[in-house]
Design a protein around this nucleic acid. Structure first.
Lengths: 199, 199
DNA sequence: TTTGTTTGCCAACATCTGTTGACTCGAAGG
DNA sequence: CCTTCGAGTCAACAGATGTTGGCAAACAAA
């Protein structure tokens, strides 16, 4: 149906998208202004509107994302966790889209929804293939650890997390992810309800 | 030096602070406007300026926070992790300050700095007391899991993480936190450098 | 060339933002 | 009583923001 003719403005469109990803990643949704994005792309702000309609749709276009989870069919189950952690680190450092999604997703509902879609649609099926039971719960737990690492290392920049080497990070996180993905569901808690908070 | 006289405007000051915490927690730093906060507190926006100077200092006042980590001196090491996880859940659901700090910290540098201070100053010493080695690294890892959970459950609201019960959450996270805090440093990775990313 | 279309820039709009200063009202203190 | 002072409101500012429409130049089609 839709003929994909190469337009003369394709260069500009791409420049806008690249600048948008950078700004959204660095500043989040609200602080990334269309004027700043246009300035980075060295064009007029009105061009952004012409090609992407409004800010919301610009973000949607800039936050198009695929986790590109690796093929795990032939991989021994023991190595799945390590591969996953390494892949996430690569994916996170590879381009700025995930950063843009996280920074925006914390305050922008549409970005949060996109984040939910990505992790449900891509980690969910993987968990369903390899996890013995409760695959969605397991996928959620893996998400919490992986996103928590990204938050501390790339966004909040907690010094000890920033200082860690890639190999050590993988070594520490792999057992956790393996447990969440493949381990048995844990026993009930040993700590009673009222825990340690005074009122 | 500073005499703490109770002023007639203390009620208003408190109302402003409460409204500010709510708005910062719900909307993040930039979308939480002084006008909206003032409206919630049922006063004029200029009062916020008079009592707190500017938006930055209002946030600083609203984000005053203490993790209130429980006393762990008499607790068996086996139960430290479970207690910590339970305490963090309480702390997250207890008031909105942590939520405000997280939502703001993702886009606001001052809030991120505050976040670093809190976790370094409060989790760091705890790790130093109980951890066999690399206490700061261990504190960072614990932060990544705990903050990741909060991010997924309370901010991004990933459905499987939201659906989990408190007891199950504690049961799943406790072994992870125990490993990070007390376990031996893991061996090097079994996965070579180039992992799964195509260029 | 003439016509129509795309690409880009400029100026402006309406609105919202943090922030300021002048003003009113009521309580307190002689 | 009159005076002083703090609490609170109102209106406005300067700047930034998303967004719009018009216009000029470059290009393509005839």
């Amino acid at each position: 149906m839709s003929e994909e003719r190469s337009r003369r403005s394709d260069g500009t469109r791409a420049a806008i998208l690249r600048a948008a990803r950078e700004r959204f990643a660095a500043d989040g949704y609200e602080r990334a202004t269309i004027r700043a994005i246009a300035a980075d792309a060295a064009i007029d702000p009105s061009m952004v509107m012409r090609y992407y309609g409004n800010k919301e749709r610009l973000f949607a276009a800039a936050a198009e994302f695929d986790l590109r989870l690796p093929e795990l069919s032939g991989v021994p189950v023991d190595e799945v966790a390590a591969l996953l952690v390494a892949h996430f680190l690569d994916r996170w450092e590879g381009d700025e889209t995930l950063m843009a999604l996280l920074r925006a997703g914390v305050t922008n509902p549409a970005a949060a929804e996109r984040m939910r879609e990505i992790f449900a649609a891509q980690l969910g099926p993987l968990a369903e293939r390899v996890a013995p039971d409760q695959p969605h719960t397991r996928a959620g737990l893996v998400s919490s650890q992986v996103l928590g690492l990204a938050l501390c290392r790339y966004v909040l920049k907690l010094p000890p997390v920033v200082a860690m080497e890639r190999a050590d990070l993988i070594a520490w996180l792999t057992p956790t992810v393996r447990q969440y993905l493949l381990g048995p569901a844990p026993q009930g808690p040993k700590v009673p309800e009222g825990t340690a908070v005074r009122h």
